[in-house]
Amino acid sequence: MNAIEASELVIGLVRENGDIANHADGCDIITMTAAERALGVALPPSYRQLIEEFGTWDVAGEEFLGVYRTPAMGQKLLGSVAETLDACSQYGMPSDFVVVMFDGMGGLVVLDSSQVDEEGEYPVLVWNPGIVDRQSMERLGNDFGHFALSLCQRAVARWRESS
């Protein structure tokens, strides 16, 4: 299974678990293009697919930033774009990282666009302010699709078992 196929399974998982999942209305090509321009990097295909489908989403307590706008914030790109730009300007995060989640312990779950694989995917890492050596960063996955699928499957299973 490749990263895109894993993202397709995430889409199905979110839709099948609507009682414990939320999502926005998706992200159109104009917004996606603006997001990539603001970030200065193309989003990897598996992450892009989920953003196109949901914009932003959560399932069983796992929240993914995505890309979206709200009427209150106007044209400002929220989610991954806002958090990435803030982390770069406020904490010195490398500009080739894209923030996709918070790790719940003060770190940021990021995609490292400096390490592109043959499918255009980026590895998923945890970045903490002050970390400069990428080799010392925790690696959560080789691509976003498989990372998100594994995280969502575990979260749904835990939620269902505890209910």
Rank of each mutant, 00 (worst) to 15 (best):
V59R: 01
R48W: 04
T56K: 07
V132M: 10
P45H: 01
T70V: 06
I51L: 02
D28R: 06
R37L: 10
S163R: 11
E8S: 11
A42R: 07
Y91F: 15
G120W: 02
W159E: 15
M93P: 15
D103Y: 08
E52D: 12
D103Q: 09
A35I: 04
F102P: 02
E8T: 05
G92F: 05
A38K: 02
R48I: 01
E119R: 07
H23P: 05
I30C: 07
C27A: 12
R160S: 07
F54W: 01
Q49W: 08
C152S: 15
G92N: 08
C27M: 08
G12N: 12
V59A: 05
L43G: 04
Q135P: 01
E121M: 08
G92L: 04
R69Q: 15
G18S: 12
D86F: 10
L111D: 02
C152I: 08
G120F: 00
R37D: 15
G74V: 02
A82E: 12
P94C: 04
E16P: 00
A72Y: 10
S163M: 09
W127M: 05
G66Y: 02
G26Q: 04
G40E: 05
I51S: 02
Q135G: 15
W57T: 06
N142Q: 08
G120T: 03
M105H: 14
G145Q: 04
V109P: 13
V100P: 00
M1S: 14
A157C: 08
L125A: 06
V100Q: 01
N17L: 07
S80L: 06
L85D: 05
A34Q: 13
L13C: 10
S150C: 06
S150G: 14
F64K: 05
R158D: 15
V98K: 00
V124C: 07
Q135F: 13
A87F: 04
W57P: 00
